[in-house]
Design a protein around this nucleic acid. Sequence first.
DNA 1: AAACATTGTTTATGTGTGATGAACGACACC
DNA 2: GGTGTCGTTCATCACACATAAACAATGTTT
Lengths: 261, 261
Amino acid sequence: MFMSPSVLLMYMSGPDSQRTVNATQTSVSVLEALAEADGTVGVTELANRLSIPKSTAYKHLNTLYEVGFVNKTGREYELGLRLADLGERARATDPLYRTARPHIDQLVSVTDQPAGLVVEHEGLAVDLYRTTPARQIQVQLPNSRYLHCSAPGKAILASLSSERVGEILDGTGLPQKTDRTLSDRSALREKLDRIAERGIAFERGEQRASRRAVAVPITQNGSVLGAVYVAGTSDRLKSKRFEEDIPGILISTVKRFLPEL
Amino acid sequence: MFMSPSVLLMYMSGPDSQRTVNATQTSVSVLEALAEADGTVGVTELANRLSIPKSTAYKHLNTLYEVGFVNKTGREYELGLRLADLGERARATDPLYRTARPHIDQLVSVTDQPAGLVVEHEGLAVDLYRTTPARQIQVQLPNSRYLHCSAPGKAILASLSSERVGEILDGTGLPQKTDRTLSDRSALREKLDRIAERGIAFERGEQRASRRAVAVPITQNGSVLGAVYVAGTSDRLKSKRFEEDIPGILISTVKRFLPEL
DNA sequence: AAACATTGTTTATGTGTGATGAACGACACC
DNA sequence: GGTGTCGTTCATCACACATAAACAATGTTT
C-alpha cells in the first residue's frame, strides 16, 4: 500500500552496502515518507509506515529537526524549510529549469491553472518546479512520485524505450492509487503508445480521484528531458478546455522554449 | 575561512549525541558544503573543506548520489534535483511563502531585479524563495547563509532582541567574507540600530564584492517572520534607484501583504 | 476520577557499520 | 615514462546505530 517500505528495501538491499552509508539512507527514507504523507506525521505513525522501531524513527526525526530538514509543531513533523533553500540552490544551475520556468509562469497566467515541470530520476518523478495562479488560495496537491499514474509521468514514460519502461516498472511496481489507476502493464503500454503518437498525456483521477492533468514531454533529439504539465480539479478541467484548449497551449509552449535549450 | 568546519563542529559537539544520528549529520554537512561551494566540487576538495577523510567523503557523496540528493557529472558533484522536489513540498504549506510569493513575483517585474524571501533558522539564513527577471540570463548568486553580511540577514537581526543577536553571533561568528563585511560586533550593532529605525537594510558588497541588495523585515506583532529582498550587481543598483526607489517599493510591498498573514 | 490506551522519550545492550588510513588504479601533466 | 593528483577500494577497529524494553506524558474511556 505504501511505497516507503519497498523503497527502503530497495536501498537496504543495495548490492554495494560497502560504498554507502546506511544511516543516511534511512534518514532520506524518513524524508520521503514525510513528503508522501499529506500533512503532518507523528513518530509512531512514521515508524509504522517505514516498518522501523519507534526509537529509530525518533532519533532520525530528531536529527533531521536539528538541521532544519524537518519541522516540528508540537509532536507532529513535516518537511522543513531548509530543504526549500537547498532546492533553490540545486535547481539554480539547471538549464532545463532555467529556460522552462518563465514559460511555465506564463502558462499559469494564461490557463489560470496550476502548472509545473517534472523530470525523471531512478524511475520516479521529481518535481523540479511547481506554481499556482496568484489568486488561487487552495494548496496544490503534489504529484505522486510514481510515473505510471500521473500525466507528466506518463508523458515521460511514453518517450522512453520499452525496455527502460520495463526496468522502471520492475523497480517501482504499479501501485493502484485510485480505481482509475492503470495497474496493468499491457493496458499501460497501449496508453503510452497513444501518448507517444499524439505527443500529449492525460490524467483523469488516476492518482487522486478529484485531480486531472495534461502533460507534454520535452524531448531533444530522441531523449526526453522531462515534462511540463497543467493540473487542476476535475470540475475545472473538463470537456473542450481539458481535451483541446489546454493541450494546444501546452504543446505550443514547449515548442517555443525547446530551441532555447 | 570556510564555514563548514565550524558548522560540522557545531553538530558533532551537540550535547545530546545520544538522541541524534551522527552519520546523518555529516551527510547534511556534505550537502551544506556543496550548497556553499559555487559550481561543482570533487571528492578531495570536499573532504578538505570539511576536514574529513577522503574515503568518508566519498561514501557520503555516493550515498547521497544514489538517492538523488546529489548530482554527479563526471567526477564532480553538485546538489541534486531531488532536493528541489522536497523543497517544493516543504514550502507548499508554509503560510509566509504562500502569501508572500505572488508579491515577490510582482516585485521582480516592477524592479526588473532578482528578489527573494529569507527566513532565519538556527541563526542562519534560509532562502525560502528566489526568483529573477524572465529575460535575465545570468545566474543569480545565492545569499550567504550568514546573517551579518546580507541585507535580508541584517534586516532580520535588526528585528530581534539584542540577546538573541548575541546568541546567534556567538554560534556562527562573523566571518569576513569581503573587506566590507562588518566583522566587528559593536559596528554591526550600530548598523542594526539604524536599520531598525528606518525599517530597511542595505548591503554593499559585504558578502560579495559585486553584489548589492536592499531588504525589509516582515514583522508581525513584535516578532520577525523573515525578510524580503531585492538584489543585483553594484553597477545596476546605485544612486537614487538603490537608495530610495527600490527601498520604497519594498516597503510598500511588504505593507501590502502583511495584513494577509 | 480512576483505569486504560496511546503517544513521545529515554535507557541499556550487542552487533553491525561507519570512520579511518593506507593501498590501489586511473588519468593528466610535465 | 616518471610524478603528481584524482577517485575508488580495502582491511581494521572502535563506536555508534539499531533495537527492544522500560519509562514518562499525554489523551481517551468508562
